[in-house]
Simulated assay, not measured.
Amino acid sequence: MSATPPASADPRKDSLIEFPSFFPIKVMGLKADGLVHAITEIAARFDPQFDARSIELRESSGGKYLGVTITVTATSRAQLDDLYRALTAHPLVKVVL
């Protein structure tokens, strides 16, 4: 009998994402001073090589909201989960996709 663990024991097999990879995340929040800075700080906390120059901004038609797309280097599912939790916990952030 083989001692090889089942494929589901390998967390990389449970994800459709191949790690490491560049992973875009869209954050939508209230258009307010500090939103982009806060998102940048959070991204850098989870991806030390995060390049703020890669940020894309898109204002809502009414001007109340701002879409901020960041691209991080995803190294694990746990990293992405923690990053999503940190972003959604910010008071100016409304949605993270």
Rank of each mutant, 00 (worst) to 15 (best):
V72Y: 13
Q79D: 09
L80R: 04
T73L: 02
P6Q: 11
I17Q: 08
L92H: 05
E41N: 10
Y84C: 03
I25C: 04
S61E: 13
A3S: 15
S76E: 00
A32L: 05
A3C: 04
S21D: 10
D51Y: 07
S61R: 15
T4R: 14
P5C: 01
A44P: 07
A86H: 10
G29W: 09
I25S: 04
L57Q: 08
D51V: 05
H90I: 04
G34E: 01
S60K: 06
K31I: 01
R85Q: 11
T69I: 08
L30V: 14
I70S: 11
I70R: 15
A43C: 12
H37G: 02
P48Y: 06
E18D: 11
V36E: 06
I42K: 11
F50Q: 10
Y84T: 00
R45W: 02
L83V: 09
F23T: 04
V93R: 07
V27F: 02
R12M: 00
F22I: 09
V72M: 11
A89H: 07
K26W: 07
D14W: 11
T4K: 15
Y65G: 06
L92P: 07
K94F: 11
S8A: 13
L35S: 02
G62W: 03
R45M: 12
P91H: 12
P6G: 13
R53S: 07
A52L: 06
I55A: 09
T40W: 04
D82N: 15
R77Y: 07
L30K: 07
H90M: 02
S60G: 04
P24H: 05
T4E: 15
G67D: 08
K31P: 05
R45N: 12
S61I: 14
S21F: 06
G63C: 12
T40F: 01
L66M: 06
D47Q: 03
E18K: 13
P48V: 04
V36C: 04
R12S: 06
R85I: 03
V93F: 03
S21P: 09
L66G: 10
E18V: 14
A9C: 12
T88C: 09
D14G: 09
G63Y: 05
A44V: 10
D82S: 15
E56M: 13
G62S: 10
M28V: 12
D82Y: 14
L97G: 00
M28H: 03
Y84D: 03
V72N: 11
P6V: 08
R45V: 01
G62H: 02
S2P: 14
A44L: 13
F19A: 02
Y84V: 03
V96Y: 08
D81Q: 14
D47C: 10
S54C: 06
R58V: 02
S2M: 14
G63N: 12
I55P: 11
H37W: 00
F23V: 03
A7S: 08
